[in-house]
Design a binder for these strands. Structure first.
Length: 653
RNA sequence: GCCCGGGUAGCUCAGACGGCAGAGCAGCUCACUCGUAAUGAGCAGGUCAGGAGUUCGAUUCUCCUCUCGGGCUCCA
């Protein structure tokens, strides 16, 4: 090795000798032209660096390209800087907060002079300015300043000054040397930033779109002033950007709120109140089918069915702790003549506990599993209500399992199996698990109890071959929880089932059972809901299936269309036969052209459209137009179709 | 709850310096009787979200309330 050379190591374990002073970008160029073109940043000894970073003897270097998530994040982050520059250009007196990359894009928070606001109409102008800045090919220049120098540079930007103050006192966010890092886009713009960034405002940027404006609290705290946030999406290529916009369109088409109207499933009449849904006949039928199957499975899994009222005296929720910890989420009380206060129930657990406590329990009864489709009411803040996924009145498929400490592990294991199995029957099969731990300051019980409960949940989760994600501080006030997250047909994740361990309420209600040793013992309580809420689960299914319910759930499974009046008698017999076989079939008479009737049935996303004409009357057959098929089938014997539909329903496809 | 933007027929949307409210689809009626995604004609459909104010006159301007959408915060 010549003295003016250094040796660096590549990710594949090989080494390479390069000239002293070689930068990460130079290295990429030496390896290949395409790599240089795709290179965004480099990973040098485990730290992300700009491509102009000079390499040193012995460095381990990986070039990160625009195909890598980290490269993409850098592109988004750099785009956010360009956004900030554009806004500061266009709005004299504006100041800025932070602007990180996020999933699919980026945002930047601003404060406009005199409490001004952005409007959606402003976005094209800002976007145009961003493209001008990109055209100027301004380099991203990294620098490190002493805190005092940085304070001078950002003297007009109070939020930046706050960040500098934090950085100079917080050892984690200061650089090793105690300096504050900045990135400059000369000649006009400089920002506090850890970096890294793309080389200049032209390279890799440009495949972006500003999406929306929003208010956002400074540092996410609702006590802080609200800043003006601009969201954008940014990608490595035009094709990726277009694909993303197309995905959004597809998601909008599946929106359960839109499909709920189009398919006549449910509505939210203003007269009832925000977040309170009514289910129409078709939605009600789907819901009934969902519930019926769930009931059937719960019977098979050894659950007992109970019922409880929607309201209760205050004392119950004092004992349970809800009024201490959950009062904000409850509707205000109803005052009765004699001064008695009643509350709408926000949860079912206290009621099930009273059923448990209605008499002395023996260890022979455990585990005791009490199930109810229980309607609960929660006072959600007006701004958070969203379709069926966030409502003020909902029905949970709720059960509380009372068991001994010894039974807890097995019970949690079989419960998780049950949950995943049932969700699969509803067509969801891509899951991960999330473990939510103690919410500090908002929890009852000792650390030891929480640790023990959390460990029990973790142990049960580990027996499943699924990814486990931690959610620190996300537990309920009475105990930790595991939630099952499901990915739908277009890859979005939804929180579905929750399983919560509770050592608290059994104590508060002084629950006990008589053990084999003839002593009193405290049972463990497991709260669990598989759908979460029926309303939310219904919404998820609507979106997952884009409204095209599988035959077992479809409100109408088959529609019979006679070609002309002469075929109506045969068509009626066919529809009657299907109904007699237990299917949901209807018939639309021939008073408009066949094409129009077919179109309507297609828009209703029915699994099967059955067309009958002369041939069918003569041969006892049916024309079958199956949803999603290329072309209709002719001359299908009615018995064959009946078997086919029966098989679809049985297979839940 | 907070910030921004909306609410006109069942749905999707147009409209007006403040002066009798418009279309397509859906609905109803009649005609057509048809082999796989829109048959034709006609009819009906509205306190322009609700309330107050300004005005000779308000769906239009102002304020309040309700409600929806996008975010923030929070969550099943």
């Amino acid at each position: 090795m010549a003295s003016d050379q250094i040796t660096i190591r590549l990710p594949d374990g090989s080494t390479r000798d390069v000239a002293t002073g070689t930068t990460a970008g130079d290295l990429a160029a030496e390896i290949g032209r395409n790599l240089r073109k795709a290179a965004v940043i480099a990973d040098v000894n485990g730290v992300e660096r700009d491509l102009v970073w000079p390499l040193e003897q012995g460095d381990e270097v990986a070039i990160i390209t625009n195909r890598d998530d980290r490269g993409l994040y850098t592109i988004r982050h750099s785009t956010a800087h360009v956004l900030a520059q554009a806004v500061l250009d266009l709005y004299p007196g504006a100041t800025f907060g932070i602007g990180p990359p996020i999933e699919d894009g980026f945002y930047y928070d601003f404060e406009l002079p005199d409490g001004g606001h952005f409007h959606e109409d402003d976005l094209p102008r800002i976007e145009a300015r961003m493209r001008e800045i990109m055209g100027e090919r301004q380099p991203f220049i990294r620098d490190e300043l002493l805190a005092d120098e940085a304070r001078r540079v950002f003297k007009d930007h109070k939020y930046k000054l706050e960040i500098i103050d934090d950085a100079s006192t917080d050892p984690m966010s200061a650089t090793e040397s105690g300096l504050v890092r900045t990135y400059e886009n000369p000649p006009r713009f400089i920002d506090l930033c850890r970096g890294p960034h793309v080389e200049d405002t032209s390279t890799h940027l440009g495949h972006f779109k500003l999406m929306r404006v929003a208010g956002a609290y400074w540092r996410g705290d609702e006590k802080n002033p609200q800043l003006q946030r601009i969201y954008g999406t940014a990608w490595a290529s035009k094709a990726d950007l277009d694909a993303h916009l197309k995905r959004l369109e597809e998601a909008a088409k599946r929106d359960h709120r839109k499909l709920g109207v189009e398919l006549d499933l449910f509505s939210f009449p203003d007269e009832i109140g925000s977040g309170l849904a009514v289910f129409h006949p078709k939605g009600g039928l789907v819901r009934m089918l969902m519930e019926d199957y769930s009931r059937q499975r719960h019977v098979a899994a050894g659950y007992d069915f109970v019922n409880s009222p929607h309201i209760s005296k205050q004392e119950l929720f004092e004992t349970s702790g809800h009024l201490d910890w959950f009062a904000d989420g409850m509707f205000p009380p109803m005052e009765l003549d004699e001064g008695q206060r009643y509350y709408l129930k926000p949860m079912n657990c206290p009621f099930h506990i009273l059923i448990y406590r209605s008499r002395l329990r023996s260890y022979r009864e455990l585990p005791l599993r009490l199930f109810e489709f229980g309607s609960v009411y929660r006072y959600e803040k007006s701004g958070v209500i969203h379709g069926l996924t966030r409502v003020r009145g909902m029905t949970q498929d709720d059960a509380h399992i009372f068991c001994s400490k010894e039974q807890m592990g097995d019970e949690l294991g079989s419960l998780l199996t049950f949950v995943l199995d049932l969700l699969r029957d509803y067509g969801l099969d891509d899951f991960y698990l999330e473990l939510s731990t103690k919410p500090e300051g908002k929890a009852v019980g000792s650390d030891e109890e929480w640790d023990e409960a959390t460990e029990a949940l973790r142990a049960a989760a580990m027996t499943k071959d699924l990814e486990l994600v931690m959610d620190p501080g996300g537990g309920a006030f009475y105990g930790p929880k595991i939630s099952v997250q499901a990915r739908d047909a277009i890859g979005r994740t939804w929180q579905m089932s929750t399983i919560q361990l509770d050592f608290q309420e059994p104590q508060r209600f002084d629950l006990s059972y008589i053990g084999a040793d003839n002593e009193r013992h405290r049972p463990i309580m497991i709260h669990r809901a598989l759908f979460g809420s029926i309303e939310r689960f219904f919404a998820v299914l609507v979106e997952h299936y884009a409204g095209a319910f599988p035959a077992w759930l479809a409100p109408v499974q088959a529609r019979v269309l006679p070609i002309s009046e002469g075929h109506e008698a045969y068509a009626t017999r066919l529809a009657d036969r299907l109904r007699a076989e237990g299917f949901r079939a209807d018939l639309v008479e021939a008073n408009e052209p066949l094409g129009g009737r077919i179109r309507k049935a297609k828009l209703e996303k029915l699994p099967y459209i059955l067309v009958v004409g002369d041939d069918d009357v003569e041969h006892g057959t049916v024309g079958v137009n199956a949803r999603g098929s290329e072309r209709p089938e002719r001359d299908v014997p009615v018995d064959d179709f009946v078997e086919r539909l029966r098989a679809d329903v049985a297979a839940r496809v």
